[in-house]
Every structure is written in C-alpha cells, then in structure tokens.
Design a binder for these strands. Structure first.
Length: 603
RNA sequence: GGGGCCGUAGCUCAAUUGGUUCAGAGCGCCGCCCUGUCACGGCGGAGGUUGCGGGUUCGAGCCCCGUCGGCCUCGCCA
C-alpha cells in the first residue's frame, strides 16, 4: 500500500514513550525479522537507531502478510501506533526498548540482495570486503556514529573560527609540485603538453600568501594529498584544519588552537581540558620519552646511565659510549617477574621487537632482594656491575628489588628510538595505560634543521618556511643545528594531532634558509619564486597550524583505524575496492594528455 | 623498496606428520512449522575449481616456485 514516505514523522531511533498512543510514519531498513508464524517482529533501523515493529495477523492481516515477505535490508515505510510494551517485555538494550510500533500499513519501497555481511557492530569482516560493500558497511551504527561525530567536529571548527573572526578561503587543488616533503600526486596538463599539476600536500604556501594579501585570519577545512605508503593512521588523501594568522606570536597561535580543542572535547565528550595545555621542550621529550610525541599517561621515563655503564667492562655498553653514543634505560616497576621467554625468547618478545627496528639486542637486569634486603642484580649482565656500580645504578634509576631495568646502548638517536618503542610496548602489555586520560601537551623548541648523513645536507624538521627563534638567528651561519624553530606540535596520548609554526616573513632570512637546505638561488627562484616575490611586498609577520581532522575523529570516537573515520577510504595499496580506482584509461585520453604508459598491458 | 602474517561456503573460521571426515562447523541463506520475540525456537535443505598459475609426489587445502590481493611493519610520510 503506497505510503507518503516524504511525510516521515520522526527517525526510528527517536520513537519513545512520549509518543505512546500517537501515529507515526517511519522509514528504514529491516535489521532483523522474528516471525512466529502469527505475530511478526521487525527491527527497523535508520541513522538514529532501531525500533521494534509489531505485525498482528488478526488486527492487520494485509500488513502482516507483507511483513512475512520482508528480508534483511529491505527498505520500507510503515505507519502505525506507538504503544508501550507489555510489562516485562521491555528491551533495555535499545533506546526505544520500552515501546513498539503496532503497524497498520506498510509500503515495501525496495528489496535487497542478501547482504554480504551482517549490518551490526562488532562483526569481524575483512577490510577489503567492508570497503567493497562500503554502502552496507556504512549502515552499521558505529560507522554512522563516527561520520556523524565527524560532522559535529567540523561544524564546531567552523563555528569556533567564525566567532574568532577567521575567514574560510579555498585554495587550489591543481597546483605546483613542491620538491621537498612527500611525493606528489601528479595531474597531467592537456593544454600544456608535458607539464603537470600536483595535488596539494597542504595549502601551506597559499595560506602564507593570503596573509600577505591582508586577510589576517584564515582557516580552511581542506583535503590534502600525499603519495606515500598508507598505514592504519595514514591515508593518501586526508583532511586538515588549516589555520593562519597575521601579527601574532607563538603564544597567540597556541591559544587559538587550544581553545578549539578544549571546546570540542567539552562539547562532544564533556571533558574539560586544562587551560593552558602543558608544554614540554623537544629536548625534554627526547631525553625522557625518546620521541617527540610522548605518551605521558604512564611514567616509565628514560634515564641516562651513560656514565655509570661506561665504567663497566661490558662491551655492549662501553663500545657505543666510546663512539660518543649513550646508554639509557627504563625502570619497569615489578618487572622482575617478566619471564625470560617474554623478554628475549618468544617470537614477539621485547627483544624481537627491538631487533625488528635495528637494535642489536636487549640488555636487561632484574633486581632482587639480597642479604639485608639490599638490591642484587640477576641476569647475564649482572656480573659487569660491581657492588659500587650497582648501588650507583639503583640510585640513578630508583631501581628497587622486584624491578627490571631495560637498557639500550647505541647512538643517541637509536637509543631514543629503541627505548621509545620499548616504553610503549611495556606499558601496553603490562596494563600501565590508564583509561579515560586525555594528556594534551605542546611540544616546543624544536630544532630548525636536521642533518642527513646519507646525502650530506640539512633538512627542515618542520618545513622550509618555519621561522628560527630570533635569538638563534646568528647561529644560522655558525652552528645551524643549534638553531631552534618557532614551531610547535600538539600531542595527545602519544598521537601527533596538530602542528604549526611562526613563518619566516623576511625575504633575506628565507633565502638564507633555502641556502642551508641546499637550494641554489636559481633553484629557489624556480620553485618558490612566487613566495620570495611576495615576501618583497610588505609581508606581515604570521604563523598558524594544521590539524588532522581524521585523526581527531579517530581519537574522539576511541577508534584505532582511520578507515572508520572516512566515508570511502582506500586500502594500503591505495586501491578502492568499491569503485576499483585507480584503473586504466583509454588510449585516447592518454593521447590528449600527451602521456604514454611505460607499463605493458597485463594479461 | 625491504621483512612478516594471511587468502578454504555469502560471513567468521576448522581440517593431525601430505593419506579412507579432502572438504567440515557456527552464523547467514532457502522451504515448512511456530502468536510476545528481541542471539526467537523446531524440522528439513541448498551452497566450495581451498585466490590464480606452475612444480614435487602414487597422492597436495597442507610442501616448493611464481603471481594477484589483504593486513601488520621498517624505510617513507617537509
């Protein structure tokens, strides 16, 4: 029977006791069917939730007959009365569980093939299958929640920045290939034979130009593209909140960025974040956590024991020290009970994980109580510590009987890398990560440059347009690696969520930095001439930040994969199982683009 | 670009050292029955070229090589 489905009265998930006795018109999909031969129950689902429909053969035989033909994921409209469920038959598991709809009329709007997988949360289906049938996957309540929460976060962005006087301005997607950074996605030009656009890795230079144009406060929610290998927290195209402001110092930018995050966490999670966020220097983060995005929810802080361990006769320690490296360790409280198997034998032992990232091994000590309760070291490394050195080590690390000490001895960079990984692994396995904490912090005082031995040149730690600290400007000439940048990252629970910097607004400084980055003036002119020219036309001091929207949605929803925050993501190989993109194109299309494929046709 | 794991029914998985259960289970699906279910229940049934190609073997889901795809990971991600 045709029903005016355009006159829907509410969503399924909104049916509740306030509607008892009222007639409702609902539209949705058949989630489950329970057919008793007589009475038929259907759970009807839409984006807001589920409501139970009841079909009674005695009172509504026509509707009941149709209900018997319904199958999973059929799309229907129904009209009926909301009624309280009989006492004792409520279902507390669904929001509408105290009521049901006695259906008088039903209109079968469309049928469905049997779905490839059940449309429920907590079903384990291969990613590939989920993506191939993404339109079904997105019907799952968890996916609907995720995308709806994403909408709310994005709306909050626009509200917040609009209230702050920011102007949203779009920037080109077809733009110029940038030499540094990630690989570009290229788009061949039809009209300029042999030339290519690149999809933007970020609107970095455009937003700086907009500052030079006088827009003063800019924001954009913008897609960015990077042709690098995917991970579960990385997609080739992703969304950034991009912000830039003129006439500001670092603290002004941080205040704006924090304010937004505080508002989102308050409004979407009811969580009050600190004002202001705590700050930690890059140097401290590396020294104590081994990484520039420390997870401060648990302690396990790194201790430098280079001096003490350098005085042992243990070559694993003394050799790196002799070469200018370091010996550092973490103390694992109660770690003496970790089995040798878990530390160094098992396939996924701590040592195996470290070896996987290049470490030679995992020296460790277990501390036990000796005579008079004095700490005594066990394990093979113990014999290298005289009682005096042992006492020094315990004092330096706070190690007490029952603890374990895990060491790394290598170059300082590697020691940091190994212990950072070890911290994470130990914390996770030993359940040291408290639930419900949101440890936001700013990492500041980044170095401006880092040196790569393989091609013997400096690279920008942040990007080539980041301003050096004013007081470090003289070091650009004398000791570039000592120059600190006006750069900052937001880290939460070990995840880098946002980052930014005050930009260079003086043409001479920018040229000097390009020079350090091994760009000749000619190359700089060719690649960034437009920026340098703009910098010669009264640029305001400016700075900003960018934030990963996808990652934020992931955090807000407690998800561990970016796949669940995108509507239509791609596999690790950049393939879309739904549309089968990328795909070959006609020879004619290629000819028009002045392109010839070097790949021989398969099969 | 490197390393690891994986690919068996629509979905999730099992199948001893290669051998008479070498194709099975749960869910789903189809049919019949069932008037208060919500993991409905009962009876019956259909459904597989074990990703693909080659090799070893008397014999391969299992071993070897190649290939395609997926996931994890190192590199990469200014």
């Amino acid at each position: 029977m045709p029903l005016p489905y355009n006159q829907r009265t509410c969503y399924c998930g909104q049916v509740n006791e306030s509607l008892i006795g009222r007639s409702v018109l609902l539209c949705g999909w058949v989630a489950t069917r329970r057919d008793h031969g007589g009475m038929v129950f259907i759970d009807l689902r839409d984006r807001e939730g589920i409501v139970q429909l009841k079909f009674n053969p005695e009172t509504d035989p026509a509707a009941h007959e149709t209900a018997g033909r319904l199958r999973s994921e059929f799309c229907v409209a129904v009209r009926g009365e909301v009624a309280a469920r009989p006492a004792g038959l409520e279902n507390p598991q669904i929001a509408s569980g105290r009521v049901e709809v006695n259906v008088r009329e039903i209109d079968l709007l469309s049928t469905s093939e049997t779905p490839r997988f059940p449309i429920e949360d907590d079903v384990q289906v291969k990613d590939e299958t989920r993506l191939e049938f993404r339109f079904l996957d997105l019907r799952r309540p968890a996916m609907q929640r995720s995308l709806i929460s994403r909408h709310r976060a994005v709306k909050l962005i626009r509200d917040y920045f609009n209230e702050g006087g920011f102007i949203e301005i779009e920037t080109p997607f077809l733009t110029k290939s940038t030499p540094e950074g990630a690989r570009d996605f290229l788009v061949p030009s039809r009209k300029q034979a042999g030339s290519f656009y690149a999809l933007p890795q970020s609107p970095q230079l455009f937003k700086q130009l907009l500052m030079m144009s006088g827009f003063d406060k800019y924001m954009q929610i913008v897609r960015c593209f990077r042709d690098e290998d995917s991970r579960k927290d990385r997609q080739p195209e992703f969304t950034q909140l991009d912000v830039e402001m003129s006439f500001v110092q670092m603290d002004d930018v941080l205040r704006v960025a924090e304010g937004y995050l505080r508002r989102v966490w308050k409004e979407l999670l009811g969580v009050t974040l600190p004002d202001p966020f705590p700050r930690m220097t890059y140097a401290q983060a590396l020294a104590e956590y081994g990484i520039d995005r420390p997870d401060t929810r648990y302690d396990l802080r790194i201790r430098d024991v280079t001096d003490i361990c350098g005085r042992t006769d243990f070559r694993v320690f003394t050799e790196p020290v002799g070469r200018g490296g370091a010996v550092r360790c973490i103390r694992v409280p109660g770690g003496a009970d970790i089995s040798q198997n878990e530390i160094e034998k098992a396939e996924n032992s701590y040592q195996a994980i470290l070896k996987g990232i290049g470490a030679g091994g995992l020296p460790y000590l277990k501390v036990e109580a000796g005579d008079g309760g004095k700490p005594v070291f066990k394990t093979g490394v113990a014999k290298f510590f005289s009682p005096e050195l042992a006492a020094e080590l315990c004092a330096a690390t706070g190690a007490a009987p029952g603890d374990a000490l895990f060491f790394a001895a290598d170059t300082i960079d590697n020691v940091c890398k190994y212990l950072a990984r070890l911290r994470e692994e130990v914390a996770r396995r030993r359940g040291l990560i408290p639930e419900g904490l949101w440890n936001f912090l700013w990492i500041v005082d980044f170095p401006l440059l880092e040196y790569h031995a393989d091609d013997q040149r400096y690279y920008a730690v942040h990007h080539p347009f980041t301003a050096p600290m004013d007081e470090d400007l003289p070091l650009l000439a004398s000791d570039p690696l000592k120059v600190r940048a006006k750069a900052y990252d937001v880290v939460v629970n070990g995840v880098e969520l946002a980052g930014g910097s005050i930009r260079i607004h003086r043409a001479d400084v920018q040229s000097r930095v390009f020079e350090l980055l091994a760009l000749t003036p000619q190359e700089a002119e060719l690649k960034f001439g437009f920026l340098l020219r703009a910098l010669r036309h009264g640029p305001p001091p400016h700075g900003g930040f960018a934030m990963g929207v996808d990652r934020m949605v992931m955090l807000l929803n407690g998800l561990d994969s970016l796949l669940d925050t995108f509507s239509f993501p791609k596999t690790q190989e950049g393939y879309c199982p739904l549309t089968q993109a990328p795909s070959p194109v006609d020879e004619k299309q290629l000819r028009e683009l002045h392109i010839r494929s070097a790949t021989v046709e398969r099969k």
